[in-house]
Nucleic acid binder design. Structure first.
Lengths: 196, 196
DNA sequence: GAAGTTACGTACCATCAGTATGAATCATGG
DNA sequence: CCATGATTCATACTGATGGTACGTAACTTC
């Protein structure tokens, strides 16, 4: 038997559990996915899951956070590659829209998240990831005198809501590649409303 | 024993069931609310619920539709009271935002709806109620030459998504009366983006 | 290497969605 | 008005599952 530290054991088990949770919750939704199924997919048992996580909800929360981290990371890579702030904002919107083509993201973040975790918790997590990056972009534009004054956090939240709906539309599309520009165009006009 | 027609018996029972479903699903959410609890609150038993509805999901769907009908009705009363189409649109946004102060609406329509019914079903129902009225307003503005061309259904969907997020923000606010104007102002600018 | 802690598996319980079945209520043809 | 059939609903039951209790194995510390 190989000898590992407790930390290594924990990390590997929790990692496998979260990965399995993302897969199963993402593919079938929260309610139809049993803890036993997640544990089995992770090569463990319910006992391990309940040892490392408070319950099914905590496991889902971990999957939700993982999804958020992934999108936030993708969004944060943008600014460097774009010249001006408005190009970066538009690119960010497209990135978010495209990310909605991932079924796991849609199911966990957009569909089940609010119902399972509650809106407050969802917002708190998003505010530390996706919304943080988006709001950062708006603040940057405002600081550069390129965006109308106003309540930027509210503005970010509204833009985010619009983009999520757009993402669901996109995912539902029979030809996402063809529809992305049309949806992105509408979203862009939303942003342009605040451009100076 | 009073003698009633079958239709009367059915209508009263289903009506009480849907009313109880709206109350309990709205107050505690879908998952924590049992069919037995709904049936008991309606003065009936699970048998009646399963006779009139396909299952828990169908009962929730009925509650969801009832919520939608209520908002759609409120929105449809607006045009008559406003002079021009843009005033009506702005008023409609405020109405939708204010409706989000109702906890039952938030829980059933905004939080649980997508998770329980799936996005396709939710959109289908909304397209027959709330979204229909909203889209109708946009089309009216476009027909009057007062709105920029574009994909109006997509536009309506995005506006709707933004308003729902705004509504959740409003509900979370410590002082909704004070925050409504600020949120509505941001939402109005969204709309103005498309004004000609 | 002994004692204590952490990680995990297994057996069990309570709850609840859904089903089966039968009884009560109502409709309808004779 | 009664007999037969359909509809409405209540009750008893089953299976699945989230969560708990407890025991064992792996690791850590002294």
């Amino acid at each position: 038997m190989i000898r590992r530290t407790q930390a290594e054991r924990s990390d590997e088990t929790t990692g496998r559990l979260v990965r399995a949770a993302r897969e199963l919750f993402g593919a079938h939704g929260y309610a139809p996915t049993s803890i036993d199924a997640v544990a089995a997919a992770a090569g463990a048992t319910k006992g391990a899951a309940y040892h490392h996580f408070g319950g099914k909800l905590a496991l889902f929360r971990a999957a939700f956070v993982a999804e958020q981290e992934e999108v936030a990371a993708a969004l944060e890579r943008i600014p460097a590659s774009e010249s001006d702030i408005w190009a970066a904002l538009r690119r960010g919107c497209r990135t978010l829209l495209e990310h909605c083509l991932d079924p796991g993201f849609r199911q966990i973040v957009l569909l089940d998240g609010p119902s399972v975790l509650g809106w407050e918790t969802v917002r708190e997590i998003e505010y530390a990831h996706t919304l943080r990056v988006l709001l950062g972009g708006l603040e940057l534009a405002a600081a550069g005198g390129q965006m109308a004054d106003g309540d930027l956090p509210v503005r970010a939240q509204l833009v985010f809501g619009a983009l999520c709906e757009g993402g669901m539309l996109l995912a539902r599309s029979a030809d996402p590649a063809a529809d992305l520009p049309r949806i992105a165009a509408e979203a862009d006009r939303f942003l342009e409303a605040f451009r100076l």
